[in-house]
Structures are given as C-alpha cells and as structure tokens.
Simulated assay, not measured.
Amino acid sequence: MIDYSFASLPGIEQEELLWLQELTRNYSTDSRQRFLAIYQGRRKDPTTILVCCLVGLIGPAGIHRFLINHIGMGVLYIFTVGLCWVGTIVDAINYRKLTWEYNKKAALECAVLLGL
C-alpha cells in the first residue's frame, strides 16, 4: 500500500517523496503519522531557501545558510557579503541540493527521535 501523506508537503519533489516512503516503509500507520508531524516541523521548503538566498543579493547575505543550520557559513557570508556575491549566486543555483541535504538529515533525525 502506498501512503500519499508525504505528497502534501510543500515543494516536495519526487526523489524526496520516494526516499521518505522507503524510510518509513516498515512503520505502522501511527508511527508514520508521528514521523510526518515531526518532519513537517523540521523540513525546509526549497522555495523559502531560494527566496532567502536571493535576498542575500540585495540585503544581508547568508540568511539561507542559517536556515539550513550552516551557522559558520552564514557568519562568513555576512562578513564577506556572500563571498563577494559569488557564493550566494552558486547557492541560488544549487538551492535544491542544499535543501535536500538538510531535509534528508532532518528525516534521519526524526527517525532516530522516534526510535524506529
């Protein structure tokens, strides 16, 4: 049985959807719902990361790095104006990869938190 509850997450892509379904394949329905509730609170939407990255081109650079828990890089971006905007532009191009890496780590942390 395929569970489509993950499809309701904003901005979810096929790769993440399949990965979450595989991660929670052996979970009971109750455990899957608890996982989803925790994961929704921790997950970052790729569009939000892109918008915050683009704000760094005209305002304070590095906000998107703070959102994905790259605190050191966020501080570096603030002091170097996004590494002279080059780092910010590269991050704007790779925003999906940055978000996917963060969300993958968040999903694994949620699984460990539930003890499943």
Results as ranks from 00 to 15, higher is better:
89 I>L: 15
106 A>T: 12
92 A>P: 01
108 L>G: 02
36 L>T: 07
54 L>I: 14
102 Y>R: 03
38 I>C: 09
48 T>G: 05
27 Y>W: 11
60 P>K: 14
73 M>C: 12
91 D>P: 03
59 G>V: 11
17 L>D: 05
63 I>M: 06
57 L>Y: 08
29 T>Y: 07
30 D>W: 11
61 A>Q: 09
116 L>T: 06
20 L>H: 06
70 H>N: 12
10 P>R: 00
99 T>N: 01
94 N>Y: 10
68 I>F: 05
9 L>W: 08
10 P>V: 00
3 D>C: 03
19 W>T: 10
89 I>V: 15
28 S>Q: 12
63 I>G: 03
45 D>F: 07
104 K>G: 06
99 T>I: 02
115 G>R: 14
43 R>K: 15
106 A>K: 12
35 F>M: 11
53 C>Y: 03
29 T>S: 10
88 T>M: 04
23 L>P: 01
76 L>K: 03
81 V>Q: 02
55 V>P: 08
100 W>S: 07
77 Y>I: 06
22 E>Y: 14
43 R>N: 12
29 T>C: 03
13 E>F: 02
17 L>P: 04
104 K>E: 09
92 A>H: 04
65 R>G: 01
43 R>I: 15
92 A>E: 05
99 T>K: 01
116 L>G: 11
64 H>F: 00
23 L>Q: 08
84 C>V: 13
106 A>W: 12
43 R>Q: 11
10 P>H: 03
10 P>T: 00
92 A>Q: 04
87 G>K: 03
16 E>K: 02
73 M>G: 13
19 W>H: 09
83 L>Y: 09
39 Y>K: 05
33 Q>E: 12
87 G>A: 01
